[in-house]
Simulated assay, not measured.
Amino acid sequence: MTIWQKLLMPAMTDAMLKGGLAEVGGPVVRAADVAGVRPAELVRAYGLGGEGLVFPEAPEYVDVLLFEQRPLMRFETPSDIGERPWPTYEAGFLRGPVRAPVWLLARTRVPSGSTIQRLHADGRTEQLAAFGSPAKGWTGATGYYPPLHIIGPRAKWRGHDLPADFLPNDQPGVELVWIGDDGVPEGFEQIRPMIHRRLAPFGECDEIFEVVVTASHRGVPVRVLQQAGDEALLLLENPSWSQVEKLQPGPVEPGYFELTAPSVELESVRSVANVWAPEP
């Protein structure tokens, strides 16, 4: 099983540790390819260290997310998308002394068993938090956010469409999450207030899949992350600078932005279900 590493922006670490955010996407590398790389070399390799950039030239530490590759994750090699005011890794590798291959991971839910590690300049590694599961959330974090966004695995189970997560350590099953206290099916265990879960073998599920919803907002391609009431949370991935100026979204990390917009303003809405086919 491949272990991946995601360099976390400081705001992303805060969102995970304080708000319980459990999502990952954007540039990632294989952890083995950057083992032992110190913070200063790592931020230089990403093109994000120095005056006016995300990190100082020689940070005392950086935080990374370590996670296992799971079914339904979608990786792409970077391509030349034209000039952008942030690194795009169009050559397919990090920069400078760390010539590690880099992939772009489509936004998904953090898988169970993932950890947030703090890499110190003196070579020490400190674990800040561990992700138990979508129902349990982060151990070591002060907040929790339920799996409400339209990302990550889902399962059709006895007529219900539920957030799901593949069990770690190659266990043949999924965690199913029921949000709310009304109509909780038999066999679900309460983990948190209004959060219940069931560990189900694959054979109990009619289908395991991920839904990807895309649309156009004011002529700009977006991915729909959540729809609540009359508003939608939207993601822009490596847009042009003119598109950023047009929509004025908030930055998540270099090249990735989010904004909330009225659902009625979305056009060309398209929903695709990527279905997991288990190996015989």
Rank of each mutant, 00 (worst) to 15 (best):
A15Y: 03
H160I: 04
L42C: 09
M194F: 15
L42E: 01
L148M: 12
L105Y: 05
E189D: 15
Q171M: 15
R154C: 05
V174R: 00
A232V: 04
R192L: 08
P27G: 07
P78Y: 05
Q69C: 01
P147R: 02
G82V: 04
A91F: 10
V224M: 05
L48I: 15
L176A: 09
V224N: 00
G173C: 13
P201M: 07
A141R: 04
L225V: 07
L247C: 08
V244L: 01
G47K: 10
L176F: 06
V54W: 08
E76N: 13
A261Y: 09
L119G: 02
G132N: 03
R158C: 10
P239I: 00
L42Y: 05
L104A: 03
P27S: 12
V264C: 05
A15L: 11
P10N: 10
H196E: 09
Q226S: 08
L235H: 06
M194D: 14
A32Y: 09
E204H: 11
R223F: 07
G36Q: 08
F202Y: 13
Q5N: 09
E76L: 14
A135M: 04
G173D: 06
G132A: 05
L128F: 10
T13D: 05
I208N: 00
V37Q: 03
L148A: 10
P71W: 01
V184C: 09
S133H: 02
A121D: 13
L66F: 06
E41R: 15
L148Y: 08
